[in-house]
Computed example of a mutant assay.
Amino acid sequence: MKQRILLLILLLCTSTLVAEIAPHEYRNMQLGSPEHLQLKVLSVSKSYNLFSGNTKVKANAEVLLVTRSNSNLAVGDRITIKYTHNKTRKHWAGPRPIPILRKKAETDAFLAFDAEQNCYVPSARGASFEPLIREY
């Protein structure tokens, strides 16, 4: 009996940890992002982890437009972006994964500078490389 209760509690706790995020929360993350840029992706390298199914991504990009920049980026600057694309599991709910950038693509980017890695990282989770989500 105690094992069943513990299992039920565990299932309830983990199901809330992988729930989808509401669109207005993604918008709030975008609005709170230190960097809002328009980028042209120059190169992308990927490293796939066989066991987790996740992909580490490293992209180099050129800044085409600066809407907001706490790190004083300017048009023409080249930056490095690093992040992990988490593979979504079939039939599981959860936050949308950060998409894998493609070479030559032009995209909006909501980023933050990571001084420890000396690169930029996505700051709006799965909405980091989308246009600003409209308010409804």
Rank of each mutant, 00 (worst) to 15 (best):
D77P: 04
L39M: 03
P97D: 12
S47L: 05
G76V: 02
F51L: 11
R102H: 00
I98R: 07
V41H: 05
S45G: 12
T80Q: 10
S45Q: 15
H36Y: 07
A61N: 03
A59T: 10
V41D: 02
L65Y: 15
K56W: 10
K82N: 12
Y48W: 06
V44A: 01
D77W: 02
H85T: 01
L64H: 09
R89Q: 14
V57G: 14
I79P: 08
G94P: 03
D77L: 06
S45A: 14
K87F: 01
T84Q: 06
V63F: 07
F51A: 12
L50Y: 13
F51G: 09
H85W: 08
F51V: 09
L73N: 01
K82D: 08
S47V: 02
L37P: 07
H91Q: 13
G53K: 00
F51K: 13
L37D: 01
S69D: 06
I81G: 09
P97V: 04
F51T: 08
N54C: 00
N60H: 14
A59N: 08
F51E: 13
N54F: 04
K103P: 03
L42I: 09
N54I: 00
R89V: 11
H36C: 02
K90N: 10
P97E: 12
S71A: 12
H36R: 03
N54V: 00
G53Q: 05
K58F: 06
Q38C: 13
N54L: 06
A74N: 11
L39P: 03
V41L: 00
R68Q: 11
V41N: 01
G94T: 01
R96V: 13
N60E: 15
G53P: 08
K56R: 13
K87A: 11
P95N: 08
K40V: 10
I100Q: 04
Y83R: 05
N72G: 10
K82M: 10
K103C: 03
V75L: 04
F51Y: 12
S69T: 07
A59M: 11
K90S: 05
I79C: 02
P95Q: 03
I98V: 11
T88F: 09
R78Q: 15
N86V: 11
A74K: 12
H85L: 04
V63R: 08
A61L: 00
W92V: 11
A74H: 09
E62S: 03
V75R: 12
V57M: 10
H36E: 07
H91D: 15
G94F: 03
F51R: 12
R89S: 13
T55G: 06
T55L: 02
L101V: 02
W92G: 06
L37W: 00
I98T: 12
R102V: 11
K90A: 08
R68W: 01
R78A: 07
S52C: 01
N86I: 09
K87Q: 13
R102I: 07
V44D: 06
T67M: 15
H85R: 04
I100F: 00
K82R: 14
K87I: 05
S71P: 02
N54T: 04
I100D: 02
K40R: 15
